[in-house]
């Protein structure tokens, strides 16, 4: 019997690929967000609103992660911006390698902002770096205020939390204060925006954050 000390990161391969992706994004001047949430929280709706609001000033591209269909990529393509579909074939998250495979279908040089819409899931995507600058999580009011406590890694890893479907708050037993309190406890540096993709309430704060980040990135400020 022999004992071999190993000490290796289980996700070392993904972490290496993600770092390479990050370097490629930086070389091409693309600011990258990894957008995550439960299924149905409003990722694609947020993308549609964001594209409508910003496409004249910021060149946006989208990578759509989905287990089976191209429904989301078709929705985004209708906006006239480049959208690449990745079908994960039952995998519950996107990883660095899948993002790398999408590079061939994207003109990175032409983009200012690339948004990766991850597979709808509050657990697994948080574990896998794709090479993004920031992780953004959406939590919608009907999901309930216990989600940050139940899925701490997601809220710990994200830089931004968008609380979506604010228009439903009067009809649902969900406390905005609890969402804010628990998520800020897990991540004191989290930026929180209260929005409704349906009524467009609060979205201008999100657009301002995006504009500021993309411009700062273009100016060469280091952002991861």
């Amino acid at each position: 019997m022999v004992k071999i000390p190993v000490v290796r990161e289980i996700l070392e391969v993904n972490d290496r690929i993600a770092e390479e992706n990050r370097a490629i994004f930086r070389e091409n001047g693309v600011f990258v967000l990894n957008l995550m949430s439960s299924p149905g929280a409003g990722k694609t709706s947020l993308l549609e609103r964001t594209i409508d609001a910003l496409h004249e000033e910021i060149q946006i591209g989208v990578i759509e992660g989905d287990i089976q269909t191209s429904i989301d990529a078709i929705r985004i393509s209708k906006k006239g911006i480049p959208a690449v579909q990745i079908n994960t074939d039952d995998a519950c998250h996107l990883d660095g390698n899948m993002i790398r495979a999408a590079f061939d279908s994207l003109d990175l040089k032409a983009l200012d902002l690339l948004i990766i819409e991850n597979v709808g899931n509050l657990v697994c995507p948080a574990e896998f770096d794709t090479g993004e600058n920031h992780k953004v999580v959406i939590l919608s009011i009907p999901e309930g205020d216990d989600k940050p406590a139940k899925y701490p890694l997601m809220f710990h890893e994200a830089s931004v939390l968008l609380v979506n479907k604010m228009d439903l708050l009067p009809y649902i037993d969900c406390s905005l204060d609890v969402i804010k309190e628990t998520s800020m406890k897990i991540n004191p540096h989290l930026e929180i925006f209260e929005v409704s993709c349906k009524t467009q309430e609060g979205l201008s704060n999100w657009y301002d954050w995006l504009r500021q980040k993309v411009h700062a990135f273009k100016e060469g400020e280091s952002d991861r």
């Binding site: 290796r8 993904n14 990883d95």
Partner: peptide, 23 residues
């Protein structure tokens, strides 16, 4: 169920070490 991906990464590392140390 990202444990499948984690398990694959883990197995790869163990097999690497198996080869390296002739286990």
């Amino acid at each position: 169920m990202h444990e499948v991906s984690i398990a694959e990464g883990l197995l790869q590392i163990v097999l690497d070490e198996v080869k390296k140390h002739s286990i």
